[in-house]
């Protein structure tokens, strides 16, 4: 009997494997994002300090990350680290590293601009009420900054999730890799598998990213109120 194309998705545990692949990709993005938020906050606060050296170094870091394609960074860390430093990183580990390196820079810049967007009067107002510097930061400045940067942080997360499709190139078995395996395995029985499998991957990415992108839009609208 001729296979219907769509059946390739449900043969054996193919669909489950695709989901697992999606989870592998998502896990990299989520872990990297969590680390980026933490480090990005520190980096962002660091960038608000008026110090030539600090500002110069952060500028270089930021520009490097922005100019360099993520794929080059991935190759650099995955292959470069193994070859020149003798560190044998797993593909997933290297991906998390690179994504965190990228995310910290982007997040840091978001935090920096959110922090300086809080008017100096707000700091003064806290101080005038007898609050210590850290209290002013903790109760007044940071909550306001978080509100400001939340939409862009969520959209950074969606960008990260999308970009995980690159990590297949350093051998991480994520959703695209699993898809390729399924297509290869059914090359003869189902020549149209590619369309269905990549279609399914498209929908999976959509299902994961759409809620986040919607959330970013909602937050943006709320913020504008």
């Amino acid at each position: 009997m001729q296979d219907l194309g769509i059946q390739v998705l449900f043969r054996g545990n193919n669909f489950l494997r695709l989901l697992e692949g999606m989870w592998a990709a998502l896990r990299i993005a989520l872990i990297a994002m969590a680390l980026s938020v933490l480090l990005g906050f520190l980096f962002g606060m660091l960038m608000t300090i008026h110090n030539r050296a600090i500002q110069c170094i952060s500028r270089i870091y930021l520009e490097t990350v922005r100019i360099m394609p993520q794929l080059v960074l991935l190759f650099l860390v995955y292959f470069g680290a193994a070859k020149h430093m003798g560190v044998n990183l797993s593909g997933e580990m290297a991906s998390i590293l690179v994504f965190t390196f990228w995310g910290t820079a982007e997040m840091g810049d978001l935090v920096r601009s959110a922090l300086i967007a809080v008017p100096t009067h707000q700091y003064e107002s806290g101080a005038a009420l007898g609050m210590k510097k850290w209290q002013t930061y903790f109760y007044i400045v940071i909550p306001q900054s978080v509100r400001r940067l939340l939409p862009s942080a969520v959209s950074l997360l969606t960008r990260m999730i999308k970009t995980t499709s690159l990590v297949v190139l350093i051998g991480v078995v994520e959703v695209v890799k699993v898809g390729k395996q399924i297509i290869d395995a059914s090359r003869y029985t189902n020549p149209k598998a590619a369309l269905w499998v990549y279609g399914a991957i498209f929908l999976l990415y959509f299902a994961v990213c759409f809620p986040f992108s919607k959330l970013a839009a909602v937050l943006e609208r709320k913020l504008a109120e």
Binding site: G126, L129, G130, M131, K132, Q135, Y139, I140
Partner: peptide, 8 residues
């Protein structure tokens, strides 16, 4: 409430 609680 903020300052009386957190500061005082």
């Amino acid at each position: 409430l903020l300052a009386p609680r957190k500061v005082q």
